[in-house]
């Protein structure tokens, strides 16, 4: 086979992925970028190169607040999900007998099988003033009157964490299961305590799985509209919610696109911060 033919063959193999990426990522991204530089004059879309939509971020406090709310919720969800998912993944990987691990993982991801929207509404009912949590606490005498749990940031974070713990458990488990038990045995033989083994051996080796899962959690959480809309009760707005408002009645695609570009910028920064440990091939 000539070098030219080999090159053509190579292109033939990558062409589907290349075309897919161009059609469904590059072109839409460029259109969105161009749209963010357009303006809405009255109700007419005017194409051009204007930074007016980005300037609105500095002029309108609620837009900045939406970015801050999104970041606060996303970081909280990511940290809490990691803290809950790691022990679960560790127990499945190291304590559950291999023949039961599949079943344990299946049980861990079982909630994935229900609709995301239905799951969010289910949480709304659970956290309601007359829901299971309040009734249980009242019944146990721990509360004298119901507390407000639904329609709060706590509810949004709870809904998110329930979803992302499953995702993180999978990514961390996939990483932990690849670690040879000899590393931990060697550390123990050398006199390391269980805590020292965890800090200096297991955790550093598990970091790619943790960071990969945390990054996916960050990306999915910061762009999500459904959970804060249903569980947060609009008591505060995230960026995706503000984007939806711009599109709903006024069809302000330019401002919505600018906000989406800002979200992409935040995700890019998160990627750069975690790139050192990101190992998607470990999944």
């Amino acid at each position: 086979m000539t070098a030219r033919a080999e090159r053509m063959r190579g292109w033939g193999f990558v062409a589907p992925a290349l075309i897919w990426t161009l059609a469904f990522f590059v072109v839409p991204f460029l259109v969105m970028g161009a749209m963010s530089l357009a303006t809405l004059e009255g109700r007419t879309l005017v194409w051009g190169v204007s930074l007016a939509n980005y300037a609105e971020l500095t002029e309108k406090a609620y837009l900045w607040r939406a970015i801050l709310v999104s970041l606060e919720i996303t970081l909280t969800v990511t940290v809490v999900s990691v803290l809950l998912a790691y022990p679960l993944a560790s127990i499945i990987a190291f304590r559950v007998p291999p023949r039961w691990q599949r079943l344990a993982l299946l049980l861990a991801i079982l909630p994935f099988w229900t609709s995301y929207v239905v799951r969010s509404y289910a949480w709304l009912l659970v956290l309601a003033r007359e829901g299971v949590v309040n009734q249980a606490l009242l019944g146990l005498g721990l509360l004298s009157e119901p507390v407000t749990l639904a329609n709060t940031r706590f509810a949004t974070v709870t809904g998110f964490v329930h979803f992302f713990v499953m995702l993180l458990t999978l990514t961390i488990y996939a990483n932990l299961i690849q670690l040879s038990p000899n590393y931990r045995r060697a550390a123990t033989d050398l006199g390391a305590s269980a805590f020292q083994t965890f800090c200096h051996v297991t955790l550093p080796l598990a970091l790619p799985g943790i960071v990969t899962g945390a990054f996916l959690t960050f990306v999915l959480c910061i762009g999500d509209y459904v959970t804060p809309q249903i569980l947060g009760g609009n008591t505060e707005l995230t960026v995706p919610q503000v984007i939806m408002v711009q599109l709903g009645r006024r069809a302000d695609f330019p401002l919505a696109s600018a906000l989406a570009i800002v979200l992409m910028g935040i995700v890019t920064l998160a990627y750069l911060a975690s790139a050192r440990w990101l190992r998607l091939d470990r999944l």
Binding site: K60, Y62, V69, E236, V242, V245
Partner: peptide, 12 residues
């Protein structure tokens, strides 16, 4: 636009 901005400011 002004009404929508006021609404979003109130929600936040």
């Amino acid at each position: 636009i002004e009404m929508q901005d006021l609404w979003l400011e109130t929600l936040q």
